[in-house]
Structure formats: structure tokens, C-alpha cells
């Protein structure tokens, strides 16, 4: 029930927007979105509401962190 789907905004009118989700079009609300999102940008949609903007190429600290764990392990193995 708590799955949210990344969707691309294709039309925007105030707090209402039309998004494209895997090729299907859906009308959603932008009322809960904490920041502005423009047409063409991606938002996470849960039960008809955009709940967060998602950057397609979001830099992830977690990836760097994981890299560190792996390097440490591999260095010990070597």
C-alpha cells in the first residue's frame, strides 16, 4: 500500500497535474509537494498525490558509503 511510483509531469495547472506513469496518463494533485516541479520533471506519486520530487541522476551518499564498506572488505581479503 505504501508504494509510490516515479512519474513524469506532462501538464500542470496550479495544484493539478497530469503525469505519465509507464505510458499511462493520470491526473494527480501537487498539494503535498514540498517544492516546485516543472513539466518534464519527475515526482514520486502515491495514491494520487505527488509526495516528493525525484532527480533522475540524484547523487547518492549511500553509494559512496557502500563503496567504502566494500573497499575495506576487499582490501582485507587481498
Amino acid at each position: 500500500m505504501c508504494l509510490a511510483i516515479p512519474s513524469r509531469i506532462i501538464e500542470k495547472n496550479g495544484f493539478e497535474a497530469t503525469v505519465d506513469v509507464y505510458g499511462a496518463r493520470r491526473k494527480i494533485s501537487l498539494m503535498l509537494l514540498p517544492e516546485e516541479a516543472a513539466v518534464g520533471e519527475y515526482v514520486l506519486v502515491h495514491a494520487g498525490f505527488a509526495i516528493q520530487k525525484v532527480e533522475e541522476d540524484a547523487a547518492s551518499d549511500a553509494l559512496g558509503f557502500i563503496e567504502e564498506i566494500l573497499r575495506a572488505l576487499e582490501a582485507e581479503e587481498a
Binding site: M31, L32, P34, L44, Q52, A58, S60, D61, A62, F65
Partner: peptide
């Protein structure tokens, strides 16, 4: 408490949703 899902989760969450 660490965040793996950084693309969708900020430390402060969604302030607008929380306020509502």
C-alpha cells in the same frame, strides 16, 4: 539510522505533508 534510499528520502521528510 542510515538512509540507503537517498533519491526519495530527506532527513527532514516532507515538511508540507507533515504540516497538513
Amino acid at each position: 539510522v542510515e538512509v540507503q534510499y537517498q533519491t526519495a528520502v530527506r532527513a527532514e521528510g516532507n515538511p508540507k505533508a507533515l504540516a497538513l
